[in-house]
Design a binder for these strands. Structure first.
Lengths: 150, 150
DNA sequence: GCTGAAAGGAGGTGTGG
DNA sequence: CCACACCTCCTTTCAGC
C-alpha cells in the first residue's frame, strides 16, 4: 500500500477506540459518507495495514491476574523463526520479540496465578535451547493503551 | 459480575479474533441465537468484563517500526499513580507497569525511528524523578497476540 | 432465570452518477 | 466521493422451556 493520508489515520484512530462503530458513525467524525469509509477500511484490510479487530477483556475478571516480562538468554544464536515455532503454541505467551542487548528475546506472559506462571515459564524454557531466563513480574499496570479508554 | 460460564468464554474467544463478527455468526459457532449472544455480550460490557473493541494495526505499515522495552529506575519510592500522571500524556508510551526486581517500572515504547525513540526516552526521563533507564530495543516481533487463548 | 421467533428499523454494500 | 436501492443484520418484544 502506498501511504495513508490524514483521513485514513483518523479512521484508524476511531477504529482503535471503537472497533464496532458503524461506518456512518465514523464517517460523521471524519466528514465522509459511510460507503467512503467502508472503501478505505476495506483497502486497509486488503493491504494489511489493519490486521484485524479484537476485543479488550478485563484480565482480572477472567482470572488472569498475573503478568510477567521474561528476558531469555539462548545458547548460541537462534533464528527468530525457530523461537516462534517453539513458543507460538504456548497460550500464556502474549508476545515475543528478539532484542538487542545482553538477552536474546523478551516475552510478555500472562497467567492465572504464580503457580500457573511458574509452569508457563517451565514450558517456555523447555521448548527452546535456553541458557537461562530472568522474570520481571508486574505489580500493577499503570498505562495500557491497547485498551480503549471507554 | 458473578462468573462466566463456558458459553461466555467461547463468545469472548470468538470476539477476540473477530470483533466485528455479526451476532448471528458468533451464535452459529457457540450454538446460540443472535439475540442470546447479544444479551450475553451486553451483560459483559455492563459488568466490565469486556472493556471495548479495538483494531489491530500493522505498526510497520504506519511507519512506527521502532520499538523498545524500557526499564526505569527511580529515586526512592514513587507511587504508581504518580508515574501514571507522568507518562500518560506521552503518546509513544504504549504500556507501563510497576514491577518486582531491581527496576521500578517497565515501559513499552513505540516510535517511528531511532531518533524519535531517543526523544521519547528523553520525555520519559524528564517527566519523573528517574535515576536511570535501560532500553531493550526490539529487533523483530515473533509473536503478537492480544489475549491469551487459554 | 434462560432461550428462540418474528417484526420493524437500522446499517452494510454494490451500482450509477 | 455521494445518492440510492437492496438486502443483510441488529434489536426489541413476545411467548415458551
Amino acid at each position: 500500500m502506498d501511504r495513508l493520508d490524514d483521513t485514513d489515520e483518523r479512521i484508524l484512530s476511531e477504529l482503535a477506540e471503537h472497533a464496532r462503530a458503524t461506518f456512518a458513525e465514523i464517517g460523521a467524525r471524519v466528514n465522509l459518507s459511510a460507503p467512503a469509509v467502508k472503501r478505505r477500511v476495506d483497502r486497509m484490510l486488503d493491504s494489511g495495514v489493519i490486521r484485524g479487530f479484537t476485543t479488550v477483556v478485563d484480565r482480572n475478571a477472567l482470572g488472569w491476574g498475573t503478568e510477567a516480562y521474561v528476558q531469555v538468554y539462548c545458547h548460541g544464536t537462534i533464528a527468530p523463526d525457530e523461537l516462534r515455532r517453539a513458543w507460538v503454541d504456548i497460550p500464556e505467551v502474549v508476545s515475543a520479540a528478539t532484542v538487542t542487548g545482553t538477552s536474546d528475546a523478551i516475552l510478555h506472559v500472562l497467567a492465572r496465578d504464580m503457580r500457573h506462571l511458574e509452569s508457563a515459564l517451565e514450558k517456555i524454557r523447555s521448548s527452546a535451547d535456553i541458557e537461562r531466563s530472568e522474570s520481571i513480574v508486574v505489580l500493577s499496570n499503570i498505562i495500557d493503551r491497547v485498551r480503549p479508554e471507554g
